[in-house]
């Protein structure tokens, strides 16, 4: 049993540019660090969510991408509440893992920080998105060498066919040292855009 899915909306954030459904909506100076870029976007969007500043870069990136995506998707709050979240990346939380490791390398200056340690798990980004939008749906976080649209399709379809969720937030959110890349898309049985893993791969590789 296979179901034909549709894409409701998609969002990409990389190279200090944000695009929604293939159209670039915000571009900032390429030399801006990710933290500064994220902070500017937060201020411009007037997000008023102080927890944002406690997040590590990976969560900030996932948070911002999902903000733009949900804004574009205009879903009913009942649907959002049960949305499944299936995200993936390559570096897991290594960007923050290195920071935690730095706090324990020197035995004479050994002060591991709980606020850093809590972000040494990549699935925390699913938690942050869930808290923000009160999503209590299915969760899974996968790690792969490259964005694996087939794996995500298999899992998203399984969740829909097994009636665990009707809408799935899918994507790739990776932060590793100074590199970052986020791509999220919402799939369901009804939506504005045709969906296939080939289409998703094309959108991802062409931007």
């Amino acid at each position: 049993m296979k179901k034909q899915l549709k894409t409701i909306a998609y969002c990409r954030i990389n190279n200090n540019t944000i695009s929604i459904n293939g159209k670039s909506i915000i571009t900032k100076d390429k030399d801006l660090s990710f933290s500064d870029f994220a902070k500017q976007i937060y201020k411009e969007k007037q997000l008023a969510y102080p927890k944002f500043f406690k997040m590590d870069n990976l969560c900030k990136l996932a948070f911002l991408t999902s903000e733009f995506l949900f804004e574009a998707a205009k879903l009913d709050s009942e649907i959002i509440k049960h949305t499944g979240i299936v995200l993936s990346n390559r570096a897991s939380s290594l960007d923050t893992d290195r920071k935690h490791q730095d706090t324990i390398n020197d035995k004479d200056n050994y002060f591991p920080s709980p606020a850093v340690f809590v972000y040494t798990l990549a699935n925390i980004m699913i938690g942050e998105i869930s808290i923000r939008h009160q999503i209590k749906g299915e969760n899974a976080f996968f790690v792969s060498e490259k964005f694996n649209e087939t794996l995500i399709e298999h899992y998203a379809s399984s969740l829909i066919i097994n009636r665990k969720s009707s809408h799935i937030l899918c994507g790739w959110v990776d932060v590793d040292n100074n590199n970052y890349d986020a791509f999220m898309y919402l799939v369901a049985e009804k939506g504005s855009y045709n969906y296939s893993k080939e289409i998703i791969k094309n959108i991802y590789t062409q931007n």
Binding site: P50, K54, F111, S113, P114, A115, V118
Partner: peptide, 15 residues
């Protein structure tokens, strides 16, 4: 509006 992680962080700061 601090939370439980902030409390733990303050404990580290005191130390």
């Amino acid at each position: 509006g601090l939370d439980s992680i902030d409390a733990l962080e303050l404990i580290v700061m005191l130390d």
